[in-house]
Amino acid sequence: MSSSVTQPKIDTAVSTASDSSNHIKPKIILIVKGITLPVVLLLLCEILVKNGVIEPYLLPAPSSLWQSFIELSEGELWQHIWTSTWRVFLGFFIGSGLALIFALLVGLNKQAEAFLEPTFSAIKSIPSLAWIPLLLLWLGIDESSKITLIAIGAFFPTYTNTVAAIQGVDRKLIEVAQVYRLKYLRQIREIILPAASPGILTGLRNSLSLAWMFMIAAELIAATQGIGYLLSDGRETSRPDIVIIAIILLALLGKITDSLMKYLEQYLLRWRDVVK
């Protein structure tokens, strides 16, 4: 009797371990595929620089970048990273927060759309660099001008995607809500916003990516700290190693924050797996 009870438990454990192994292997293969191209490019750069095909003052060997990174990290590198990061997140929260408010107003109200949409469409077409002289005149070179520029960059992806998502909600869902005589605010909370949430979260994710781009534009023009300042300082002092390290840091920070937003999106939209 004991043997017959133990056997199913062993089979279950083996099956669970096998399933876990089957899930891990594709992830490892995916990671290997993802890092293949960067590794090949690094090796190619190392070979070309070491053999004199490319001059070190134009493109330093990847092996020499580590020493430059150590030197920077012993100085104010972490302060630069922290400064840029909090600027991005503050500008992102301000810009995307305002975007959600206006997008809800425009998406749910035809009169508001008639008044606001033409203006927002025109402002959206203005390049980021065109804002910088005006913001410097109005707000000076302090943090307010940088945060405002980042907020402008974060505003429009969230606004555009949210309006499109709300207006794209299936009318049949709203008709069903009206049949059950749900109040308007309850329709918004329980029908419209859940149905539009994939588009809204996509807009927020795009806004965060664009916030990093606008941060660089702000820090390249007027800043004494930040990753954008490192880029500018590396150019002015003819230090391509500093420029490349700053670019790598931007790529890593952008990837990390985008991955965090992706996981948040998957968590908030986990109900879709239940529906399926």
Score class of each variant (00 low, 15 high):
2 S>T: 13
3 S>Y: 13
3 S>W: 11
5 V>H: 06
11 D>K: 15
14 V>Y: 05
22 N>M: 12
25 K>N: 06
39 V>T: 13
45 C>D: 00
45 C>I: 10
55 E>I: 00
56 P>M: 00
57 Y>D: 07
59 L>G: 07
72 L>F: 12
78 W>E: 05
81 I>N: 01
89 F>T: 02
91 G>C: 09
94 I>K: 08
96 S>R: 07
97 G>C: 06
97 G>H: 06
105 L>Y: 02
106 V>W: 06
110 K>R: 15
111 Q>W: 12
113 E>G: 09
116 L>T: 11
117 E>F: 14
123 I>N: 05
124 K>V: 00
130 A>L: 01
138 W>C: 10
146 K>T: 08
154 A>T: 03
156 F>V: 03
158 T>F: 03
162 T>A: 10
164 A>F: 05
166 I>K: 11
168 G>I: 08
169 V>S: 06
171 R>G: 15
173 L>H: 13
173 L>C: 06
173 L>E: 07
173 L>R: 11
179 V>H: 10
187 Q>H: 04
192 I>V: 15
192 I>N: 06
198 P>A: 01
198 P>Y: 01
202 T>L: 03
204 L>P: 11
214 F>T: 15
215 M>T: 15
217 A>V: 15
223 A>C: 09
224 T>N: 13
228 G>V: 12
229 Y>E: 01
229 Y>R: 10
236 E>Y: 07
236 E>D: 10
240 P>K: 06
243 V>L: 06
243 V>S: 01
243 V>N: 02
254 G>D: 04
263 Y>A: 12
268 L>G: 08
274 V>M: 04
